[in-house]
Nucleic acid binder design. Sequence first.
DNA 1: CAAGCATATGCTCTTTGGAGTATATGAAGA
DNA 2: TCTTCATATACTCCAAAGAGCATATGCTTG
Lengths: 122, 122
Amino acid sequence: MKSVESVFEIIAEPNRRAILGLLVSAQQSVGEIERQLRMPQPAVSKHLRVLREAGFVESTVDAQRRLYRLKPEALQEVDAWLAPFRRFWSAHVDALERHLDRMDRSIPTKRKTRKRRQGPNR
Amino acid sequence: MKSVESVFEIIAEPNRRAILGLLVSAQQSVGEIERQLRMPQPAVSKHLRVLREAGFVESTVDAQRRLYRLKPEALQEVDAWLAPFRRFWSAHVDALERHLDRMDRSIPTKRKTRKRRQGPNR
DNA sequence: CAAGCATATGCTCTTTGGAGTATATGAAGA
DNA sequence: TCTTCATATACTCCAAAGAGCATATGCTTG
């Protein structure tokens, strides 16, 4: 049993993302998820278990049913990881330009020719 | 060759996330990534290939080196997917409260008929 | 052209994890 | 109690993918 998968591995699975998507609107029982996603019940339960152990969802008991609802903490982790990259899709095109311009990340290897960028000149 | 992996599968790989992390600060050559991450060169190249084909990075040629830099579009996709969930980590506590209120988190070891629930579930 | 560096690719091996199926648990109602 | 419903778990099978290693490609310089 490995319970320490990264949140990224968890949401890498399409069915799990689908389940999370369903739970955005409202909590759902296993059966409801099963029907909406047209997925075999054991599959649903299994994915829910993974999601639960990873902290993405939590469940409460209602008679024989289990109602699953979203727990946002885990997804916040993804959001946090994304943060440093955000500055890129605002204005980075120019910054990139500057980079290309001054990049001389030379390494302790002998290099004579530089200025060899720009263009797929074969 | 399958090139149509979801962006989520791409970033599920720890080494790839590490590479992306490196590229946030500046573009890097394969060798630089190799050294900083202490990862065998073929591994770096392979991951870079995956990242490139998925649109996470792009490369330019500099003599025998290849300089890789970030391409934010793919990560924006993740960001977009995350959007619907964002409202959860602002105000959702109240909804949660209501739920916790009408059920018992205790273990229903031996329980007789309880309220049959009036659920909003159809 | 030959040599050397930087990077890419091909191949095998191994592990992981989802699919599918069968079955177990547990609660509710007759 | 027995039956039925809702959900969970156990188990096998299979494919995908990363690790590791060897090698190919390609550019540069002597």
